[in-house]
Design a protein around this nucleic acid. Structure first.
Lengths: 276, 276
DNA sequence: CAGGGTGCTTTCAATGGTTGGAATAGTATT
DNA sequence: AATACTATTCCAACCATTGAAAGCACCCTG
């Protein structure tokens, strides 16, 4: 289009860049480069992983640093800033539920002295919102801010069981992922499990890796009766019988639900929402 | 107004907009609109508070929602999203110190059953990173993610005392702010106080509002000996003598410091850094 | 101490993503 | 029905954005 090839240098200095992506997306993709394993990154690392030239990355990063989304260390590397954390703490599904649930998590933790977890669902995974652990606790399962699968963890099964039908079907039809340490679950069994979880308000999973543990989880409801979070406890296999843990976990989850305005139903069944 | 429909149009359709601000800054200013009191906002509220036209705000927000920085509620309002919280949890000075300190905060909390606070400094304020509170605790002082002044809180004084000289001077020369509930501190007294804090590793403040409380705080050091955080306990005035609290708070803070790689010095003095 | 390598920063002309007034549709209030 | 407010779509003008190129700074290794 509009060639006009005369007298010009085909690839002169100002070569046409491809561009094409919104600036915000690029900036956000820079934030997305950070992960558990990448908490402090150099400019070139950020540029490389975000897939953009260094000058572009530098310009964007400069804006992020100016605002406080990123901070620069003495050695020149960049880390996620406190300002971003501050805004993020206003996330209702992040710190929101956490704030309300924390006292009850603490109670449960004090009594049991084992890992107490709180998670919400984000798309097809569970995001860990809180974890209380003793200093000498068993090997850590997941870290706060990390993600866990829905199908092979107790905390995830609860969230899956409480999700809208359509979403559940999508997940159910997906072929089971091979994950070491947990016994696989084909669609039929998974369906029955989810049904049980809804009926009993309890999900339970045994793991053999990274260590032999038993997880018990229970749903947290909001005022509308929707499952908004999942509360779980993880104990070394054989330490405390699951049937002793279950009532404690369910009681804690119920206490949080009540605090969120949930009125307990006559039936204990989880009502699945056909639309979410 | 100003009909002038057909024929000549001096200021035709495509009128020159002022523009002039980087896109990222605009997007970030949208995030900055959210606060403790504004956790769920409509498009027009966001546009108004961020000072931009609705269509512009909508376009930017659409990108933020697509990435997960914001989420849209059923009623059309926007809230901070879990994805943003997830990235923010990688903030070393945010969740980083929190993760390491939490077990020790829990210990202190279990023993005392009073508010236990953890904060870092961001510019001229303390940002609350963690707060453990009993369900029936006294009136809350500050919330997690919120900010507290450096000069009139125990947790802030510790951070101020450990800041670089240049910064301290800037703050010291600022006229004392009038805040109800705390006794004011002129420059001279503040200087002496900060010196005491450095020497003893303890800051103490009495408040009469919102309730009569005593706060005791102690610094947390990193491997380089810099004050990176402040640990505090807030108790109702008269409940527990401060001289009983001080050793417990200092011990907890020291335990966290050790975990950060800090080697205790012969002297207990806080070394102020001339450059930070 | 040249020489090669890596990473950070600045420059600058071309350009395409960005902009916001205007129009339209939807919703609540008078 | 009229009024007021919010949300969304449209689009032509335009300026912020872009990235190759070059310049710095700082390692290494020979």
């Amino acid at each position: 289009m509009t060639a006009t090839p005369e007298t010009d240098t085909p690839t002169a200095r100002g070569k046409r860049p491809k561009q094409g992506e919104p600036v915000i997306d690029r900036a956000l993709s820079l934030l997305a480069v950070f992960s558990d394993r990448r908490r402090a990154l150099t400019l070139s690392e950020l540029a490389r992983h975000a897939g953009m030239p260094a000058p572009t990355a530098l310009r964007l990063i400069a804006r992020l640093v100016a605002w406080g989304a990123l901070e620069r260390l003495d050695d020149g590397r960049y880390v996620v800033g406190v300002r971003l954390w501050e805004v993020a703490s206003l996330s209702p599904r992040g710190h929101g539920v956490r704030e309300i649930a924390l006292p009850y998590l603490e109670d449960l933790f004090e009594v049991t002295r084992h890992h107490v977890l709180l998670a919400v669902r984000d798309n097809e995974q569970a995001v860990l919102i809180e974890r209380l652990s003793a200093k000498d606790a068993t090997e850590v399962a997941y870290r706060v801010g990390g993600r866990a699968p829905l199908r092979s963890t107790a905390i995830g099964l609860v969230l899956l069981a409480g999700a809208d039908q359509q979403f559940q079907e999508t997940i159910l039809k997906r072929p089971p992922e091979i994950e070491p340490g947990v016994s696989e679950m084909p669609e039929g069994q998974l369906r029955r499990t989810l049904s049980d979880v809804r009926r009993t308000g309890i999900a339970m999973i045994r793991r053999s890796l990274p260590s032999r543990t038993v997880s018990v989880a229970s749903p947290i409801f909001d005022a509308q009766g929707a499952v908004v979070a999942s509360l779980s406890i993880v104990v070394p296999d054989g330490s405390t019988p699951p049937n002793v843990l279950a009532p404690a976990v369910r009681a804690a989850a119920r206490a949080v639900s009540r605090n969120l305005g949930f009125q307990a139903q006559a039936s204990t069944d989880i009502r699945t929402h056909s639309n979410g």
